[in-house]
Design a protein around this nucleic acid. Structure first.
Length: 469
DNA sequence: CTATGGCACGGATT
DNA sequence: AATCCGTGCCATAG
């Protein structure tokens, strides 16, 4: 097994190298297109049928054991388990989306969000339901809220309000969770509901959101504690959970954005190309890393075709042989791509374990060059592999893979926290000192840059905290 | 005099 | 080779 992998690791020709590079830089969806076009033009390629693991029902490669079930219960090593996860159903076919989105013209700004959401839910919808979904999604504002009501939509489309409500709920549960809600409160409730299915949620969180939005936004925890007859400690705990894990404006990426309405940076959403999760969503089990393959099977050179080449006339033989060459090259490149991705992810997840588990504050500054040396590949290889890829974290957030290499994200997060909790506005110079206490050495000028990136106003303009959901 | 934003340079990234 | 990012220097606003 090792020998086989070693063999495919070495680029044999420049063509091999070039194609591997190209494949590396593709996202899962682009890879699907590439593979499909390759299969349809080259008869020597063959997609071997899917096979499912008898115990966990995951799709697994033709040759090999189920990567999940073969994980020991209590692995001694810290290394994460990385494997390819061939699943076809994960990414909805493109036509699904184009078909519906086209007949509803949508304002140019924020076009990413509706399409992104529709992609996720399209497979679960019947044809006429997709029309309703598309209509709803075209009536979102930049915060991800519905600008119309369920009742109006039902009237306009001549369908039952219940039907519209059902689809709205489906949209709300898609990523970003809470999108398509009518207001921040509704968004938060949906997020609580979804989070509650996978992990622990403070009991009081829901009640606070339902009954105490005003106090929550003003940080008046003692009032809440009194009204609910609960200890303040629990209220604060729940409030902290809410501000850490929920987002009242699903269309935006973070809480901090609400201060600066003129934020031009619109988040672009992606399908994840890699999923990191606890095995069976159980925090006591090890982390598993799935690299999504857009196929429900394994690609290989068709052995029948090989035979056919031998028996063909001399005339045709040349053509067929060319196909054969191309096919085997493609398969090799694909293997190489996957192998590189596996090694990359294994290393990166190992290094950034704290970031993945505990958040941006714990991101370690890792450079692409460093990884490339450790993996003994060219740094441009890593660059390509990292670019344009999205990773789903155990908490269901989707972040770009490049964020694992962001040298300043941890500093910016701590900076935000300091400013969130400030009693009087700190100047940039003050912030330099405060950051130094947290172990971050940055220049004064850089603090200013980070502020503007995060959309935080300069000290003299941010007096009191005026949060207004 | 202090706090902040603009411009430009050098190193890293693509 | 082109582009992005952190930082130093300097001008400007308060």
């Amino acid at each position: 097994m090792f020998q086989a992998q070693y063999h495919t690791t070495r680029p044999l020709t420049t063509a091999h190298l070039a194609q591997t590079m190209t494949l590396l830089s593709l996202t899962t969806e682009e890879l699907r297109e590439q593979i499909e076009s390759e299969i349809s033009t080259n008869p020597a390629l063959e997609l071997v049928e899917e096979r499912r693991c008898p115990t966990c029902h995951r799709l697994i490669p033709e040759h090999g054991v189920c990567p999940v079930c073969s994980i020991p219960a209590n692995p001694a090593s810290e290394e994460p388990v990385v494997f390819l996860s061939p699943r076809d159903e994960f990414i909805p076919k493109k036509d699904y989306v184009d078909e519906v989105v086209d007949d509803e013209p949508y304002a140019t700004e924020g076009e990413e969000l509706p399409t992104y959401v529709l992609r996720q839910i399209a497979p679960d919808l019947a044809k006429e339901q997709r029309g309703i979904a598309a209509f709803l999604l075209t009536h979102l504002d930049e915060d991800g809220f519905l600008t119309t009501s369920v009742f109006e939509v039902a009237k306009y489309l001549h369908v039952m309000p219940g039907e519209v409500e059902k689809i709205k709920h489906l949209i709300q549960r898609a990523d970003p969770v809470g999108v398509g809600s009518s207001n921040p409160q509704e968004a938060l409730l949906v997020q609580l509901e979804v989070l509650g299915e996978t992990g622990p949620v403070p009991q009081l969180a829901e009640r606070i959101v339902r009954e105490g939005m005003d106090e929550l936004s003003r940080h008046q925890y003692p009032e809440l504690a009194h009204r609910f007859g609960e200890p303040t400690r629990l209220i604060v705990e729940a409030a902290h959970f809410i501000s850490e894990n929920l987002n009242p404006f699903p269309g935006r990426s973070h809480w901090g954005d609400m201060r600066q309405p003129a934020q031009e940076s619109v988040q672009v959403y992606h399908q994840p190309d890699v999923i990191i999760s606890y095995l069976n969503d159980d925090p006591h089990r090890p982390l598993v890393v799935e690299i999504i393959m857009p196929l429900n099977g394994t690609l290989q050179v068709n052995p029948m075709f090989k035979q056919a080449v031998h028996q063909a006339d001399a005339e045709k033989k040349l053509d067929l042989k060319a196909d054969l060459e191309k096919a085997s090259l493609f398969v090799k490149c694909l293997q190489q791509r996957n192998h590189t991705m596996e090694r990359l992810l294994s290393r990166v997840v190992g290094l950034q374990r704290d970031y993945i588990l505990f958040g941006e504050k714990y991101l370690r500054p890792v450079t692409r060059a460093q990884i490339s040396r450790e993996l003994e590949v060219h740094e441009s290889t890593i660059s390509r592999a990292v670019a344009n890829k999205a990773v789903q974290m155990p908490n269901r957030r989707i972040v770009p893979l490049s964020s694992f290499f962001d040298r300043s994200l941890n500093v910016r997060t701590v900076l935000k926290e300091i400013i969130e909790g400030e009693s009087k506005p700190y100047s940039d110079a003050d912030l330099v000192d405060l950051l130094a206490e947290h172990g971050f050495e940055v220049a004064r000028r850089t603090v200013a840059k980070y502020r503007s990136i995060e959309g935080i106003l300069p000290a003299h303009l941010r007096k009191a905290v005026a949060q207004h959901p």
